[in-house]
């Protein structure tokens, strides 16, 4: 077989599989940290959106509007090229985590706010009537119920975050897509590299989106 998918090309890829494994590991690490901070941002901003402070709400909406309406690749470019000029230096992993968390967090906040609003108001009132503060009522009564509503769409965001981590390739992020790009460029072998990279993304994303579907079915059944 000749062309981009020749046996020789496949063999060369398999000889260098460890290089891809390294990138795969970094993608997992960036995604894991990114997801962790996404959840923190999502819950914090979501709580503000459901709160009473108009000033904070406006601030959060401005954050969400900015990050939801500019391409992630531009945001990454700004962190990489412009922040150092302001004296803020970040490693590529940090840039990856920060950019993914801020970008996905803007969507996660919407999910958290919708999930909180889906919990009947009476639940908050019942908790407050027992003497819980607003925050205690949120943590003990409202959020545990909101999790059930918000988990399926949040899992979909996790899939998006993992795929979006490939944007780090534009700033030499060292993750899977960057490894694929640089290895292909060096070896002038594109076919096997991109196919295998696609498969590696599938290995993480497919179970995650299957989990989302399962959670969605379960939450519909419980409703």
């Amino acid at each position: 077989m000749n062309g981009p998918f020749s046996w020789r090309n496949w063999l060369t890829w398999f000889q260098d599989w460890q290089y891809f494994l390294q990138g795969f590991g970094r993608t997992l690490w960036i995604s894991f940290l990114g997801l962790f901070f996404t959840l923190l941002i999502g819950v914090a901003v979501g709580l503000v959106l459901c709160g009473k402070s108009r000033a904070l709400k406006r601030l959060c909406k401005a954050y969400m509007s900015f990050f939801q309406n500019t391409p992630l690749v531009i945001q990454v470019f700004i962190y990489y090229n412009m922040l150092p000029k302001l004296g803020i230096m970040m490693g590529t992993v940090t840039i990856g985590v920060v950019s993914l968390a801020l970008y996905t967090g803007a969507y996660a906040a919407d999910i958290v706010a919708s999930a909180i609003r889906a919990v009947p108001l009476g639940q908050m009132e019942a908790a407050q009537s027992q003497g819980f503060s607003y925050m205690q009522s949120m943590m003990r009564v409202v959020l545990p119920q909101a999790v059930k509503v918000g988990l399926p769409p949040m899992t979909n965001q996790a899939v998006n975050l993992i795929k979006n981590s490939s944007v780090m390739a534009v700033v030499a992020g060292g993750e899977l897509m960057y490894c694929t790009d640089s290895w292909s460029g060096n070896n002038l072998i594109y076919g096997p590299a991109f196919v295998m990279t696609g498969i590696l993304y599938l290995i993480i994303c497919l179970p995650t989106s299957m989990l989302a579907r399962h959670l969605e079915k379960r939450s519909l059944k419980d409703a």
Binding site: P120, G122, Q123, E125, A126, A127, Q128, S129, Q130, G131, F132, S133, V141, P144, Q145, K148
Partner: peptide, 23 residues
């Protein structure tokens, strides 16, 4: 606020829609 929360502990309320915690 903290005194209000404390006061509410002594004021029970039973609601029209029960509002039991489903979880």
């Amino acid at each position: 606020n903290h005194k209000l929360y404390q006061a509410r502990q002594s004021i029970g309320m039973v609601f029209q829609n029960f509002n039991l915690y489903p979880h």
